[in-house]
Design a protein around this nucleic acid. Structure first.
Ligand SMILES: NC(=O)c1ccc[n+]([C@@H]2O[C@H](COP(=O)([O-])OP(=O)(O)OC[C@H]3O[C@@H](n4cnc5c(N)ncnc54)[C@H](O)[C@@H]3O)[C@@H](O)[C@H]2O)c1
Ligand SMILES: NC(=O)c1ccc[n+]([C@@H]2O[C@H](COP(=O)([O-])OP(=O)(O)OC[C@H]3O[C@@H](n4cnc5c(N)ncnc54)[C@H](O)[C@@H]3O)[C@@H](O)[C@H]2O)c1
Lengths: 212, 212
DNA sequence: ATTATATTGTTCAACCATTCACAATTATTA
DNA sequence: TAATAATTGTGAATGGTTGAACAATATAAT
């Protein structure tokens, strides 16, 4: 892998899109794809795709295209999906429960091996194949299982506290759905997913329609 | 409102963040906030905030800051949240069920007034205060209720078909969680939310840690 | 009334990302 | 084998976003 220059976030966000579509192509038995065709499927320009990929090396064959299987493997290595990350989810309410049951995370290489909550009504239940553990046990489970990534789907009011617990237990990265900024040490990578931005954007565009 | 030049997506994505934090400030009884303090709370530079806001007008007071209540109202109007958009959700499975139960959408001005599914086990149930209707009835309900925004949380395999139905019924904007590109007429605004990008980004950054 | 302090709105410069154009390379056909 | 068609990788041009600096303005202090 090249990896000389710094890679922009925009590139990193597109890689999973390429990867998922390549998996579909692979399932469909398609061996070779051009940036043109891939771009058409995804709504991304072929130049963009080629430039993104050349950040990491020259994976295509001129005059031919990209070998689907090979490119898949390359992207897996770029993103680091071959590691089979272990994931823990704190807050098994509406959203946590949905995520715990989402099988596609598994196909991408993320194994959910810990579910945590404070509510006695949910503790002990089997959700998507994993038993919900008391949040007070989270520290132990994270260490014992070697969980590296934490997902926070608790109410915002306790999200910081839960993040602190995760960091103390040795978590390396956090995906948070709570609508606030988490304060964590520099070496922890936090990504915030904000599900209300999508609706707000739709509202904006419907309100301020381009005059066609 | 100014609205002369074109506003970039980046700006539109930050407005909801400002808005939600301003609501919190308002709840806390804080009347005036500077771009400096707001930026600190959100992890955004003060210059960025000022520049974003001046896309739409001059809402602050030099030497003082921004009046929280007034700015809230301005952002509401910019995003178009005063309209109380009506929302319908198709596919009341794991994720759809979570979204149907999410109260914060209401506070932002989105009212969920239609829930649709094909599964007889869920049809007829009350989810977050709304009865789940057969998808075959979606067209009628959308027209009768005047639903303008559709959320798609069905399996990917039927998402296009559901989107077509929504468009035919007169929906103006779609928020889709299905991992594929939807084909819709130009005048329909589609926003795709991809929940696997977050985890993939974390994987990338943990794998390719900056050498600190 | 004057000075000092705080903070916005705006201009300009720096940076980053995308698009364009094309040389380089591979496969295919005559 | 030579010519043709397809398609990648890349350097240059364009367009867009962010950052730094500062004039303009409001308040508070003297
Ligand atoms: N539901 C959605 O569709 C949605 C959408 C966007 C954002 N969110 C955000 O995701 C988070 C969860 O939302 P939700 O709708 O699932 O809420 P929820 O109330 O259904 O679930 C929260 C869960 O967290 C648990 N919890 C509370 N305190 C805890 C603690 N200290 N440790 C561990 N678990 C604890 C609760 O017992 C509950 O099971 C919130 O921050 C919300 O703002 C949710
Ligand atoms: N669960 C998650 O956390 C998660 C995360 C990311 C993306 N997604 C995406 O969201 C979508 C839903 O995921 P899920 O986990 O909730 O799946 P799910 O299987 O739990 O729910 C899907 C629901 O759609 C209904 N459905 C099927 N065909 C339908 C039709 N023609 N019309 C109306 N409803 C129909 C099903 O009866 C079911 O209730 C999928 O596309 C998935 O890829 C889910």
């Amino acid at each position: 892998m090249k990896q000389k220059k710094v890679i922009s976030d925009a590139v990193i966000e597109r890689l999973p899109l390429y990867y998922r579509d390549l998996l579909l192509l692979q399932d469909a038995g398609i061996d070779i794809i051009s940036s043109e065709k891939l771009g058409e499927r995804l709504g991304i320009t072929p130049e963009q795709i080629r430039k993104d990929l050349t950040c990491f090396g020259a994976f295509g064959k001129k005059g031919v295209g990209y070998y689907v299987g090979e490119l898949c493997q390359q992207i897996v290595e770029i993103i680091g999906l071959q590691q089979h990350w272990k994931v823990g989810i704190a807050g098994i309410g509406h959203l946590g429960w949905a995520l715990a049951n989402y099988k596609t995370f598994g196909r991408l290489g993320f194994r959910t091996t810990g579910l945590f909550d404070v509510d006695h009504r949910i503790i002990g239940q089997n959700v998507g194949g994993v038993i919900v553990t008391p949040i007070s046990e989270m520290d132990n489970v994270i260490r014992k299982e070697g969980i590296q990534i934490g997902i926070i789907t608790t109410p915002a009011s306790v999200a910081q506290q839960v993040a602190d617990q995760m960091v103390n237990a040795g978590i390396k990265g956090i995906l948070s759905f709570a609508p606030l900024r988490l304060n964590v040490p520099d070496h922890i990578f936090v990504f915030r997913e904000d599900l209300s931005i999508g609706l707000s954007r739709i509202s904006y565009y419907l309100t301020n329609k381009p005059e066609e």
